[in-house]
Design a protein around this nucleic acid. Sequence first.
DNA 1: GATGGTTGGATAGTGACACTCACCGAGGGG
DNA 2: CCCCTCGGTGAGTGTCACTATCCAACCATC
Lengths: 217, 217
Amino acid sequence: MRLAELSRNSGVSTATIKFYLREGLLPPGRQINASNAEYDEEHLRRLRLIRAMIQVGRIPVATVRQVLGHIDDDSLSGSIRLGAAMWALPQVPEPDEEDKHIRSVREDVDALLEQLGWTNALALRTISPSYRSLVLALASFRRLGYGESAELLVPYAKLMQQMANLDLDFMETHPSKAEQVEVAVLGAVLLEPALTALHRLAQEEESTRRLGWTDES
Amino acid sequence: MRLAELSRNSGVSTATIKFYLREGLLPPGRQINASNAEYDEEHLRRLRLIRAMIQVGRIPVATVRQVLGHIDDDSLSGSIRLGAAMWALPQVPEPDEEDKHIRSVREDVDALLEQLGWTNALALRTISPSYRSLVLALASFRRLGYGESAELLVPYAKLMQQMANLDLDFMETHPSKAEQVEVAVLGAVLLEPALTALHRLAQEEESTRRLGWTDES
DNA sequence: GATGGTTGGATAGTGACACTCACCGAGGGG
DNA sequence: CCCCTCGGTGAGTGTCACTATCCAACCATC
């Protein structure tokens, strides 16, 4: 496959593919001669993964580069590789420990994790980006005067636990570690928006069911 | 409260507050004289809502303006207002109907909604942004060779339905319509990232539980 | 009544980001 | 031999959310 073909098959302009090559997101093609290179299915697949991360997941190019690096890093064992790739995905700012909302939310979240028996999450809470995201989001919520207690999250967390089980069941249907890591990353980048969409559809469905079409207030 | 105080109380620079005033996100303060204006708690609250949408939700300024417009639109009845505000939130491109993946995913999603009995979602599928997001995300997934069937989403959808019930229960604890709309928007902007974070924490928890700390592949 | 701080308003500039364009010399088919 | 296409490179573009600077008016304080 020549660059132009790769472009046609993927729907990505040659200029953009060149940009990805330059940025090191896409490995260079097999050089045939000084002005010709050959690309294969693997390139096409990688290109689509890159597009998914950037366009759907809004992940910055530099982060995509890191994530791909972890996916390809054969020196890491499977679960470490998965963790590395997943943790590279979100770009979470450090919570400001001076902020009183941050501190109180952090206590609540820790209590929540304890109550849920998520001992691993509790152990890794200082480094897990997910934990930091959770703290930051809840702090914003509290700053606005809502979400007095993290207790409200317990039923949500239980449901999320069931979802995580569904996720892992699906992941385990894929044999190779490399593919599992890719599936996990894709799950985070593509499936999560889909689940959010499902969530909102469910809300729309349920709210019309409760309130009806006409409105009284 | 003067502009400088508003800035101190919110942690947002005066330059940025001026920018929001100029952009029409924040209503002007009560003019005391030609060079003095008074802001109140409502401004502070609104400012924090704006920051939450822009910083946490990464919502473009123009979209924030629309959403706020809907929240404030007293001419709309409650549920319409809620729908308008929620639907203004995501910026979803039109799915390309020429694309075969889009078309096949659309059929699958319609079948899924039918199977779930989400008749309202089915009726509104041509205009609901959530529906479009779902189709786009699943199409990307399929383009990469995964997610052969939307059947896989059924258990996820059932869980999302339970979540939507939790959401609405919480929303109903707030009496006024205006506040309910605000809570719903905040839920979409702030709670959803929190839920995503919970989801990933649950995944980490469950995967270490299944795979253990050491890795064998 | 000078001073220093603050106001709303306007204009232009910044930095990050994801491309996108124009050009280049090197092949290679006709 | 000619001209088209190839891949590579450097510089430019558009968007976006600010941000910096200036301005004249105004007010409290010294």
